[in-house]
Design a protein around this nucleic acid. Structure first.
Lengths: 210, 210, 210, 210
DNA sequence: CATGAATGAGCATTCATTCAT
DNA sequence: TATGAATGAATGCTCATTCAT
């Protein structure tokens, strides 16, 4: 549950500030050239400081990737949480959750894509840590679905719930990693609506099939 | 439709054979370390020949990646085509198509995952060429869905058809790139069955909603 | 007038110093093995630093050659200028110019030979730049000859002046690139005296032929 | 006086023929890219045969260079000899020798330039052998000058004779290696005439100075 | 804390040469 | 004789990381 990137600098506020610069610069660079083709020098200079300074705030190049992934997950989750309603029918809450999530993914396209494509370059430990966050996000969606089940809107067992939650999360990511194809066919509103329709017609049917 | 990797060697049969060795070795290495962390020397020696020989059959390291992606796509498509039935009701054909596809993806997990994760490292030209093949695969699925629509099993417009086809393709890929999570929850048969249920209950409902 | 070799290092004084080391080492190596047979590693270690450091001060191996040629030309020209008299009869000034030039060439034999033999390996741009300097040197000699013409020591048109200037420059270079033969026959003083005699008896005759 | 390039092939006529192809191709390639930047593969294919065949007729890449230099020298000397008159006054024979030589150099510009620039890449032995031929050519010119001295056209000692002979040879080579400059100023006829004038006015003066 | 010069292991790629067919 | 596939040493160049100032 820890996984803190070590820094030679003590001042926490400075660390926060410098790392913010770093992540912002890195996302941009990774989007354009990928993690492996981006040099630490480029990250440093795009962050507005020298290579020496960069290494005051991280230990290895991979740390930058970790910070990027970590901060993006945090932001996605943060935004999602603030958008998700706490009231309404189970159905409404599900619709809202999905469209909020898709909206966040859309707004943070570059970030999500980078995280999505480069995560695999993390070391085992870091990967594990980041994937835990992914699991948490899936769990948020599961929770909303469970609500629907409780309200008898749909009849689903745990395995089905988990699968649908996974599907939803991936459909959000899809919007970024298949953008070369999907974004030519739909805009985000259409995409959201169609996927929700799909989802709901499936759910309703489980009910009907009872 | 072009995009041939240049070779200094003239004998086409030899080229085929050596490249087969190469791709097999490369898939294995890329699975373990990724494209960027794999050296050309490793590829050569895992292929059973020297670095000099490797470069008789390709021009740049990236060519290996292209060959890998290309050959995997070909194989996936080939296998899929040989598994897909030409007869039966639209519904049966759809079920069969999805489970065949999932089966192929499952059997070629490493290959699909590699292709999936490293495709982005291709040059623009090569990427375009590979993505065309992806598009063709989506089109195969679309076709099967269209059949269902013709048989009035479901009521879907073109945009909906395309979206569902994309979902199916991605759900197959998901099996590999989320294996750390999904494959703990399901085996491939369960996964296939659940996704098909999901899909069909959605389709039936579109019919019911008419 | 441009053509600066890019460096990653910022401190200009350090650049000057390191490049001086580099050029000195390179002249020595090029003299022995030629540009193509000399490796960048050899240049680096003969310069007293690592290969990584070498590439902090240049971008490509060819840059070393350019730096070598450029610095030699500058030094030859510098030395020549400081040796050439501004007073005396046209005749005296010509004699002095030729013997100064030959003297410089003699003292910088290795350098001149290297520059002379390897210049052709420069890229088009660099070559052009270096040849401009060569042209300037020929022009310096032309100027001295023109003085003689003005003083009616000789009667020469522009074409003849240019030809003689070229001959003189080449006769200087000859001292290095035919050293295997010429330096067995003469020492530099003899060589200088004989060439000057030759030159002057030709000039005087143009006068006599009027 | 030997220095034969070893060949695995026995038939002398075949050797002659293949080497002729080789030299022709090599001169062309060396003119464009220099010896070091030309690969043996390129030489083979430009010669019209395979790399394997190339190595049936030579032992090392350098052998090609040697053959090139050797054959060019032979041709220059052959052509020169056939152009040089055996009769006429010493003066006429000198004029004729110089203009013949310049003519040959002009016609064989590429060849002479290549030989001139790449000779230094030969091994010690080969270099020595080639330079002997150069010496012989200088000797041919010396002989003509000596004739003039015998006829009392000029008064020159041996050292002067040798120097002038060297100058003439170099002035011929100059026409190629300074072509970027000289050939913009003169055509070969002008150049020849001006150099001869220069030369003769010098000689005549030695006479006058007696 | 910040800087940036120095380092050298590491990598892709080339190419002369060999040798089995 | 001719061919061309195979070899691997050699080389230019990069880049993460360190450390003295």
């Amino acid at each position: 549950m820890k996984k803190a990137v070590k820094s030679l600098v003590k001042d926490p506020e400075l660390i926060r500030k410098r790392r913010e610069q770093m992540v912002k610069a890195a996302v941009h660079l990774f989007t354009e050239k990928g993690f492996h083709r981006t040099t630490t020098r480029e990250i440093a200079s795009a962050s507005g400081f020298s290579i020496g300074t960069l290494y005051e705030y991280i230990r290895k190049k991979e740390d930058v990737l970790f910070l990027v992934c970590d901060s993006i997950y945090e932001e996605v989750r943060g935004r999602l949480q603030s958008l998700m309603k706490e009231e309404g029918s189970g159905m409404d809450r599900l619709k809202n959750a999905v469209s909020s999530y898709f909206q966040v993914v859309h707004e943070m396209q570059d970030e999500v894509l980078v995280m999505y494509q480069e995560t695999k370059s993390l070391s085992k430990d870091a990967l594990k840590y980041v994937l835990e966050k992914e699991v948490q996000m899936v769990a948020m969606i599961e929770e909303v679905i469970r609500h629907c089940v409780k309200e008898k809107i749909a009849t689903l067992n745990e395995k089905q719930i988990k699968l649908i939650a996974n599907n939803i999360v991936v459909q959000g990511q899809m919007w970024t990693f298949r953008r070369w194809s999907i974004q030519k066919l739909y805009n985000i509103e259409e995409y959201t609506q169609l996927q929700i329709e799909n989802l709901l017609s499936g759910l309703k049917n489980t009910k009907a099939m009872e």
